[in-house]
């Protein structure tokens, strides 16, 4: 971003300071050493660069991102659809809401063996793992966004002769937009968790394979680099979406009145 806000500069500075502190401690702890399986920061960075250079990391991400992207897109379409449906219609709410409440509470790791039993160990199973983890939060956010529409705005719409479909398009959906988008962002965060769990528990592919393989041959810097890279990518993506969200839906344009 070319624009730099002056008040943001000190914040950026503090972020850098806190990163330096964390990485410094990591370096010291690695050199101590607290465990042979815990490499210092510098070696992890070097391992990361090696894996980038030999192409193993980019290749791993190419296969990890597949189930993630497919799963999140599915959730985006179907999940938002269900959420909106539940928010608008009591009938849809009645038979769908319990499913998503149960899904939200279910421990994922316990469901994965079931998924592999039914769908095998291919891409389908991994996509499903992402969907199962991401869908509840996407659906519930859309549903809540719809349900929390300011009733006085709906009454206003009716008073000025708005039809039910105008009410949905001009009042309810714009009102719910921010929460729906936030749901997608949280869904993506859950999707990252889902895809890594799937790659560790179902069949080692992509980044899950890198982690499993390097830990089995005791290449700890490589293993740590793989773990750190997925954390980095996930948090950068989520952070980017959060900024986009604040831009698309400025909080002051969402409040009621």
């Amino acid at each position: 971003m070319p624009r730099t806000h002056r008040p943001e500069n000190p914040r950026v500075l503090w972020h850098l300071v806190s990163f330096a502190l964390v990485f410094g401690c990591w370096e010291i702890a690695g050199r101590w050493p607290i465990s042979v399986a815990f490499p210092p920061f510098s070696q992890t960075v070097l391992a990361l660069l090696r894996m980038l250079a030999d192409g193993s990391l980019p290749k791993a991400y190419l296969s990890t991102l597949q189930p993630l992207v497919i799963g999140v897109i599915l959730c985006g379409i179907a999940g938002i659809g269900f959420g909106i449906g539940m928010g608008l219609s009591r009938a849809v709410e009645w038979f769908t809401l319990p499913v998503f409440i149960i899904l939200q509470a279910a421990p994922m790791a316990a469901i994965i063996p079931l998924i592999t039993y039914i769908y095998g160990i291919g891409l389908t199973a991994k996509v499903l793992a992402v969907v199962f983890l991401a869908a509840p939060v996407v659906v519930m956010n859309s549903y809540k966004g719809i349900r929390n529409t300011n009733p006085s705005l709906i009454q206003m719409c009716r008073a000025f002769l708005g039809t039910r479909s105008q009410e949905v398009v001009k009042i309810i959906l714009p009102h719910a937009g921010a929460l729906i988008f936030a749901g997608l962002r949280l869904g993506l965060a859950m999707g990252f968790i889902g895809v890594v769990i799937a790659e560790l528990l179902i069949t080692p592919t992509g980044i899950g394979d890198l982690i499993t393989y390097h830990s089995s041959v005791a290449d700890y810097p490589e293993m740590f680099a793989a773990v750190a890279s997925i954390i980095l990518i996930a948090s950068l993506t989520i952070h980017g979406l959060e900024r986009l969200e604040r831009r698309l839906f400025p909080p002051e344009l969402r409040g009621s009145s």
């Binding site: 006085s152 008073a159 000025f160 002769l161 009145s257």
Partner: peptide, 19 residues
């Protein structure tokens, strides 16, 4: 039977679209 074009409402809480 419902709202009509010959009546317009001014709400106590304004009921403006914030966006």
């Amino acid at each position: 039977e419902g709202p009509g074009p010959e009546r317009a409402f001014v709400f106590q809480d304004f009921a403006l679209l914030p966006w």
